[in-house]
Design a protein around this nucleic acid. Structure first.
Lengths: 200, 200
DNA sequence: TATACCATGTAATAAGTTACATGATTTG
DNA sequence: CAAATCATGTAACTTATTACATGGTATA
């Protein structure tokens, strides 16, 4: 159900269309929550019929119209309520670690490839997250900038502090995965040199 | 689709019933993959009809019967194939970090509670994982012990090395989350003392 | 003999993924 | 005027969650 609250959180900055939101789910928020448009559009309509959003048809070019969603007071209340509730931790599901635990079922080159891929994946995540953090710090992040403009000055510090803190955590997460993968590569080398015979 | 491969990996140690497997998904493997029985039983039947497992009715007590599943050669081949393929990284979905990014929408006590809960959750995970690591190291882990008994001695070192390495990674992951949550608590205190007025 | 454990499901949702579809608008 | 971008969906499917349901076996 977090998709709903991610949408609400985004819409506290400014009214947006489904397309705007889908874009945000690829970029900024995408670092903590991702969703395809086929999930976003129907959810927005459900949220509207639940009274959390107000949808307005605004003109787009000469003939076109687009639906712009604005968060309602009820929507803000729902976001606040969710925020104050204890978080439901979902069951562990970690394909990379699952696979690592059973790497004896493949050969050294394939095992190496796993860890190299893991490191590469998380290096990319780390770099993207660093970019996001930068844009929050220097206020060039468009959604954060809009959110600040819509909030009283006294709230600015905590609005950015929590977002910076979140990205710092995500960067550290990625760095940890990179280190782990690099240790994995060393482990494979060690196992291969001890026992150069085929594994399987 | 990782559920299927988690099941195959477990069944390389020894034949097991659906119940045995469900139990394993709460204990040991549960650290990397969890699944409810309502997902396990049907999946086992699908895997049997796909030829990856062989199901045998074995007597249980006087009248009872239970189905014991044994991995087939085809099942081993499927596991090996999956192991050598690049891992599909699933979209980011991190409710704890999502929430942290928008903590300005709640008050300091509720924000503190979030991080305290996060730290407590990951302390418990860390401790459970430490216990698992211990039982792998001293060979008291029942499934690992069976797996070693079924494997040639030359493979023992790498079988345990990969599992130990996996748990070391998971422990470090939990420790990182604990540190992050503790930093979060300090951040809230800092923000509250700077600006002791209500947040909302 | 009661309690914990073993064993196996079905049904109804909910959530998420993939593929298919379409058309208008802006920009180079 | 072509290409990129904006805009919005439906349909089929897979995966996962929650709740309900039942009954046998071992053990203290």
């Amino acid at each position: 159900m977090s998709l709903r609250y991610a949408l609400l959180a985004l819409l506290t900055a400014q009214p947006m269309t489904g397309y705007d939101l889908a874009k945000a789910f690829h970029g900024s928020v995408g670092h903590v929550w991702q969703a395809p448009d086929s999930q976003i559009y129907p959810e927005l309509r459900r949220m509207q019929s639940d009274g959390l959003l107000r949808g307005e048809d605004v003109p787009w070019g000469q003939r076109g119209v687009k639906t712009q969603y604005t968060i309602t007071d009820e929507g803000v209340a729902a976001l606040r309520k969710w925020m104050s509730q204890p978080l439901a931790y979902s069951p562990e599901r970690d394909p990379a670690h699952l696979r690592a635990a059973y790497l004896e079922w493949t050969d050294p080159p394939a095992a190496r490839a796993q860890f190299e891929q893991h490191a590469a994946h998380h290096r990319e995540l780390r770099d993207q997250r660093r970019g996001q953090l930068e844009s929050i710090r220097d206020r060039t992040h468009p959604i954060v900038a809009r959110r600040l403009a819509a909030a009283p000055e006294g709230a600015w510090r905590r609005i950015t502090a929590f977002k910076e803190f979140t990205y710092e955590g995500l960067i550290a997460q990625a760095e940890r995965e990179i280190e782990w993968a690099e240790r994995g590569l060393r482990l494979i080398d060690e196992l291969s040199s001890r026992d150069p015979s085929r594994w399987d």
